[in-house]
Design a protein around this nucleic acid. Structure first.
Lengths: 221, 221
DNA sequence: ACAAAAGTTGAGGAACGTTCTCCACTTGTT
DNA sequence: AACAAGTGGAGAACGTTCCTCAACTTTTGT
């Protein structure tokens, strides 16, 4: 079962590139809710062509977001090389927030859209251990309040990227203000209040799944 | 044009009450996206009956949420009587968060659903000056970082109630953790970062309108 | 230059969801 | 009993998204 890809005809390959480019733009603007129709339109090809080349949304996303996800993972790895864990942590969170603000599709995926994207899973497996390490080091250096866990980071990102999303048309930079507020809340301070029971990583996963569009129908009598 | 309401027939009045009760439950569970169909079903009446009694969603909400909105406003007024402005502010925010967590409809309205509800407008006009006063007093007593404005409060509430909403099925209490984190971020501290340009009240209004479902279609081409 | 292969197109069918009307029917009131 | 008041809920009208397919166009190899 050798899967030797026959090369596409020249015009077909061109269309493929156009579709990928259009998908990047449209997903960035509209998030994963964007339809193939939107993308086909922007690429200047028929819907049928998009379906022929990418039978599912996953297939298209895989290709369209590869680069961005790589950048995201690399940004986490760079955070480890910062002079202090706190500096690394804040740099990473700020960069992640900026990326989420600039690309709604990335945000949807990072926040747990019900799409099983190989590249994404891989990226997450690269990022998570790094964050754990950063949190541990920050605790050790005393720059992070002790009752904060690595599970809090996704929630912080969700809140901030929610602000980023809704403020895009009004004050596209304002998410930074609330990220800063949260970062300052993460510092140790004598008058900090009690945070209560932290989330487990299962909780976080369930929550992320719940956060995205998807099915939410409740039963009725 | 005397608008002397003829009393409803006894059975009709009973149905009206049933509908209001059902609306409270359904709006609390599902938010303003709930349909008249849902409500009629729960009330055990036909859809037609709901439409006959309440021609629009506003009419029904007006009656269903009256009590809750009153409670909300009163809670703000009570905050002024707390021993310190900070205690009042946190008490109010915690209570508001709790109410939003318990009633998704209230949350939708408070966060700016595109529904012009008399009761709500009135409530807001009662609450806003109170919050301004609390913020001023907190600044004066040095318990609130100076670069925070009253416009930050709605955003804090939006973030927290977003968490409350999505975590309801998983950890219904967890929103308190992130509210606490934000509250701690609101305290003055030597190592607080710069927040940048604050929001204007117009920004907040626009943002609240954007935050809720409603129309979001972007143009194409 | 031509024919076979490869690729394209977009109208439209199917599925789903929401809003709201309408009139044959039931119930309450006097 | 008789009239007014109220009810129910199927279904019309509309909107959205997903995806297919048969008629057509372009490329490529000879």
């Amino acid at each position: 079962m050798t899967d030797v890809e026959r090369p596409l005809r020249r015009d077909a390959e061109l269309n493929r590139q156009r579709i990928i480019e259009a998908a990047r733009v449209v997903y960035a603007e509209r998030g994963l809710a964007a339809t193939f129709d939107d993308i086909a339109h922007r690429a200047g090809v028929g819907i049928g062509t998009v379906y022929r080349r990418f039978p599912t949304k996953e297939a298209l996303l895989e290709v369209a977001l590869e680069e961005l996800l790589e950048r995201h993972a690399r940004s986490a790895e760079e955070a480890l090389r910062a002079p202090t864990a706190w500096a690394g942590l804040t740099a990473f969170l700020r960069e992640a927030a900026e990326m989420h603000a600039a690309d709604r599709g990335l945000r949807d995926i990072a926040l747990g859209a019900e799409i099983d994207l190989r590249h994404f899973t891989r990226m997450r497996d690269r990022v998570l251990p790094v964050l754990e390490q950063l949190i541990d080091r920050a605790h050790a250096e005393g720059s992070l309040r002790p009752d904060v866990t690595v599970e809090d980071l996704p929630l912080v990102m969700m809140m901030v990227s929610e602000v980023a999303h809704h403020s895009q048309a009004i004050r596209p930079d304002i998410y930074g203000r609330y990220l800063q507020l949260l970062l300052d809340g993460l510092r140790p301070a004598p008058d900090n209040g009690a945070l209560g029971q932290p989330l487990t990583s299962d909780d976080v996963e369930a929550l992320a799944r719940e956060w995205m569009p998807g099915r939410h129908r409740a039963s009725r009598a």
